[in-house]
């Protein structure tokens, strides 16, 4: 009987295609990035090995650090501002009886749309002269704001768009967790006379802590990957103030013919992502298990 499931031919046949694709299209680029990252290469002429020169350059390149900072803004915005809103909305939806399904369906809509199209749509909303937002603010006498072209508002404009796209997605995740809490636990609390607010903070939030951590982790991973939205909305402008690491990498490699440097940045994105997610997981690991 065990023999059937020890058929090596089937095993190989079932694994090989995956492993081949995986090695070719994920493994190779990673290896190549590590190779070219240590060279001076303009993409046209043969690469010349230059040791850690690219990384030295990156660490003194203020534009690169600006792009790192923008990735960090992405993380901070999603955790400090977006997350409380997400939890709040999820709690609200979980507590209403009517329209529950409607709310859930509606908030999710932006998450299924293409980031590129959302970028275009919001570019339209941020348009200083005819855009929706300025027209709306003008009703309250607010003066024209140049959302995407002023360096003081460009980044926050992108962050808001990003939040608009993904808030509903996370709401649905957390909502599922809240609705998954066994009824008797909540009923018990009600008998004990807990108010809605108490019920939320004292009982529900601790119970859904694992999923909140997942949402935070996803936000961090998403923030480190941010690329489409920036490229479509500002291409990193005005003057590079909204560049994230990935857009900076593309510009260095494709526009300035610094392929060696571009690959070095690819490696840095890789390392930073590992370090940040690793640190986060390590710091939340200790008391993760909550039984109910």
């Amino acid at each position: 009987m065990n023999k059937t499931l020890k058929n090596p031919i089937v095993y190989i046949l079932f694994l090989l295609p995956t492993i081949l694709l995986y090695c070719l299209f994920m493994g190779m680029p990673v290896i190549q990035a590590f190779y070219y990252g240590f060279t001076d290469w303009d993409g046209l002429n043969p690469p010349i090995f230059n040791g850690i020169e690219n990384f030295r350059e990156a660490f003194t390149d203020s534009d690169f650090w600006l792009s790192v900072l923008n990735n960090i803004y992405f993380i901070l915005f999603s955790i400090v501002i977006q997350l409380p809103i997400i939890i709040f909305l999820s709690l609200l939806i979980s507590q209403v009886k009517r329209f529950k399904a409607f709310y859930k369906t509606a908030v999710f809509i932006p998450s299924i749309l293409s980031t590129a199209v959302i970028g275009i749509l919001w570019g339209f909303i941020y348009e200083p002269d005819s855009g929706l937002l300025n027209q709306f603010l003008a009703l309250f006498g607010v003066e024209k704001i140049y959302w995407l072209s002023d360096k003081s508002t460009a980044m926050i404009s992108i962050l808001i768009t990003n939040a608009w796209q993904w808030t509903g997605f996370y709401v649905v995740l957390i909502l599922a967790a809240i609705l998954g809490i066994p009824k008797d636990l909540l009923e018990q609390a009600e008998i004990d006379g807990a108010t809605n607010w108490n019920k939320s903070t004292r009982i529900i939030i601790p119970l859904i802590r694992p999923i909140i951590i997942v949402v935070m982790l996803l936000s961090i991973a998403g923030a480190m990957k941010a690329l489409d939205i920036v490229w479509v909305m500002t291409e990193g402008g005005p003057f590079g103030t909204t560049d994230v690491m990935a857009t900076y990498m593309i510009k260095e490699a494709f526009r300035e013919y610094q392929y060696g440097y571009g690959n070095a940045i690819a490696i840095l994105i890789f390392i930073f992502t590992l370090v940040i997610t690793g640190l986060f997981q390590w710091s939340t690991k200790n008391n993760e298990r909550i039984e109910y």
Binding site: F25, M26, A266, F270
Partner: peptide
């Protein structure tokens, strides 16, 4: 392990491939 690779960072090396 592929889950932790930020795919955006592969854009440039993958272009060459």
């Amino acid at each position: 392990f592929g889950l932790v690779i930020p795919t955006g960072s592969l854009l440039v090396p993958l272009y060459k491939l």
